[in-house]
């Protein structure tokens, strides 16, 4: 039985099942599915809805040449490759979803940790889209991150360890969705570092009186 307590809302899973969710939120949902058997089973049932609706569609006639052309392309297919990850980064962890390790090992740009504060490091990953900044966040054991306000949506999946905020404790596999205007202060658990994957649609605003001074460092850079 899954020990994950926080899940994406049903609308997100439906959009994911229909293939209509944007790339960055899809990456976060997919990372959550790696840890959550409940949502994997829910997704299977949603796919059954899609398959039943697809079966309702009136068949369309196609020419014989289409079949011949498909068969000729099948004959020329190369041997399929395996989904193994060749590590080029020490950030890769065998417990992470394959998708996340693939992103970390992207040949486009290997992510590197950048220190944002004493407690918080960030490493941006390349995802080939321009709506969300997708990054790994590392909160040190017992670390306090600044209290902040969300300017846009943010989706977070805990990959390792745990953190808490004013609302709940988030453990491995938990999915957190922040909406514009939400305010919180994530705190790392005392017993070890916490690593999260997040997709951020707009810069956060720090709630402290001098938070505006940090503005240049909080810009987002979707890539």
């Amino acid at each position: 039985m899954s020990t994950v307590n926080h899940h994406p809302e049903s609308a997100m899973l439906v959009d994911f099942s229909g293939g209509n969710l944007a790339t960055a939120p899809s990456i976060c949902v997919s990372a959550h599915l790696h840890f959550c058997s409940q949502c994997r089973n829910e997704l299977l049932r949603l796919d059954q809805v899609g398959s039943n609706l697809m079966s309702e569609v009136e068949p369309t006639e196609v020419g014989d040449h289409l079949f011949d052309s498909a068969m000729s392309q099948i004959d020329q297919l190369p041997e399929s490759d395996t989904a193994e990850v060749n590590n080029t980064s020490d950030m890769v962890d065998s417990r992470y979803p394959l998708l996340v390790n693939k992103l970390i090992n992207s040949s486009e740009s290997v992510p590197k940790w950048r220190r944002l504060s004493r407690w918080l490091n960030v490493a941006q990953v390349t995802t080939g889209q321009n709506e969300y900044e997708v990054a790994l966040h590392k909160i040190c054991a017992g670390g306090k991150t600044p209290r902040h306000n969300h300017g846009g949506q943010e989706f977070t999946v805990v990959l390792k360890g745990s953190f808490s905020d004013e609302h709940a404790v988030y453990k491995e596999g938990d999915f957190l969705s922040c909406q514009p205007g939400d305010v919180h202060q994530p705190l790392g658990a005392q017993n070890g570092e916490c690593i999260c994957l997040s997709a951020l649609a707009a810069p956060i605003k720090l709630s402290s009186p001098f938070g505006f001074l940090m503005k240049p460092w909080l810009r987002i850079n979707p890539m």
Partner: peptide, 10 residues
């Protein structure tokens, strides 16, 4: 959009 460094099946 830019090149996605992933196969959709992942």
């Amino acid at each position: 959009t830019q090149y996605l460094p992933l196969e959709n099946e992942y």
